[in-house]
C-alpha cells in the first residue's frame, strides 16, 4: 500500500510534466493538424536554456524558468515561420517529416552547444523529506506548485481571453474560424509560442527532477503523444488529465513489469485508445 502511494506521488509528478508537454502538443495538433515530433526536443532545449541562465547569472532554477519559456516560445515561432509556414499548404505528412528533422536539428544543436553528457541544475544532493513512510524532495513540491500555477494560467488564457477562445475555435473548426474572420496566422503564432513555452517548463521541471540530457525530451515524446490522444486531440483539458493518467500508469506499472518498459505502458494505453475510443476520453476532433 505504502509503495503504491509512493508510486502515485511519483506518477503525479511525472504526470504534471507530461501534462505541460501534452497541452502544447494537443493545441498544435488541433490547430495545425499535425503531430509535432519535435515537441520533446522543445522540452530539452528549454531545459538547456534554463541551465545557461542558471550557470551564467547564478540564479535559482525557478527564476530561470520564465526566461527559458520566453526563449523557447520565440524559437518555436521562428521555426514555424522559417520552415513549417512554407509547407503548411502542401501535405500534413510533409510537415510531420519536417518536424522530425527539427527534432534532430534541435537535439544535435544541444549536443554541439552544451555537450552530450548528463548535467544538473544544482550540484549536491537534496535531502528528501520523510513524511511518515513517504519521501518527497523539496523540488517536487516546487514542481507541483509551478505546474499547477501554469495550468491555471493556461486555463485562464483559454477561457477568458479573446485569443485563447480563438485558439480553441480554430482547433474546433478551422473553416468556420476562417469565415468568422479569426486571423489564422496570428492564432498559429500564439499556439507555437504557448506550446513552446509550456514545453520548456516541462523540460525544466524534468531537469530539476532528474538530470539534463540531449535526448531527455525525445524519450518523453511517446508518453506525451499518448496523453494527447488519450485526452482527445485539440482538448487542452483532456491533455492535462491524459498526462496525469499516463504518468501514474507508467509509475504503477513498475509493480508488475521491469521499469525499462515504462514507455511501452504509455504506448499500450495510446494504442488501446486509438483502437477503442479514437476521440479520446474527452471527445476530441479526431
Amino acid at each position: 500500500m505504502i509503495e503504491i502511494i509512493q508510486l502515485l506521488i511519483n506518477g503525479i509528478l511525472l504526470g504534471s510534466i507530461l501534462a505541460l508537454g501534452a497541452v502544447g502538443a494537443t493545441m498544435i495538433f488541433g490547430v495545425l493538424r499535425f503531430a509535432h515530433f519535435a515537441h520533446g526536443d522543445f522540452m530539452a532545449i528549454g531545459a538547456y536554456f534554463a541551465l545557461t541562465v542558471v550557470t551564467v547569472f547564478n540564479l535559482p532554477v525557478l527564476a530561470a524558468l520564465p526566461v527559458a519559456m520566453l526563449l523557447t516560445g520565440g524559437l518555436a515561432i521562428l521555426i514555424d515561420q522559417v520552415v513549417y509556414r512554407r509547407i503548411r499548404r502542401v501535405q500534413p505528412v510533409i510537415l510531420l517529416i519536417a518536424s522530425f528533422a527539427t527534432a534532430l536539428v534541435l537535439r544535435s544543436f544541444i549536443q554541439m552547444v552544451w555537450g552530450s553528457s548528463n548535467q544538473v541544475y544544482q550540484v549536491g544532493i537534496q535531502l528528501p523529506w520523510r513524511i511518515g513512510p513517504f519521501t518527497l524532495k523539496p523540488d517536487h513540491l516546487l514542481i507541483f506548485a509551478a505546474a499547477a500555477g501554469l495550468v491555471l494560467i493556461v486555463h485562464l488564457f483559454l477561457s477568458r481571453t479573446r485569443m485563447g477562445k480563438a485558439m480553441r475555435a480554430m482547433s474546433d473548426n478551422m473553416d468556420l474560424a476562417l469565415v468568422t474572420g479569426i486571423p489564422a496566422n496570428r492564432v498559429i503564432m500564439w499556439t507555437w509560442a504557448i506550446g513552446g513555452a509550456l514545453a520548456a517548463a516541462a523540460g525544466v521541471f524534468l531537469g530539476m527532477d532528474t538530470r539534463l540530457h540531449p535526448v531527455m525530451g525525445w524519450t518523453l515524446l511517446l508518453p506525451i503523444f499518448a496523453a494527447t490522444i488519450l485526452g482527445g486531440i485539440g482538448r487542452p483539458y483532456g491533455a492535462i488529465l491524459g498526462g496525469l493518467v499516463i504518468g501514474c500508469a507508467m509509475e504503477l506499472s513498475t509493480l508488475v513489469i521491469p521499469g525499462a518498459y515504462k514507455p511501452a505502458v504509455a504506448f499500450a494505453i495510446m494504442v488501446a485508445t486509438l483502437v477503442f475510443r479514437p476521440q479520446g476520453i474527452i471527445k476530441g476532433n479526431a
Binding site: 495538433f29 493538424r33 499535425f34 503531430a35 515530433f37 500534413p92 505528412v93 510531420l96 511517446l222 503523444f225 490522444i229 495510446m270 494504442v271 486509438l274 479514437p278 479526431a286
Partner: peptide, 8 residues
C-alpha cells in the same frame, strides 16, 4: 489515420 500511424 496517417498521423496516428506515424505515432504508433
Amino acid at each position: 489515420r496517417t498521423d496516428y500511424l506515424a505515432i504508433a
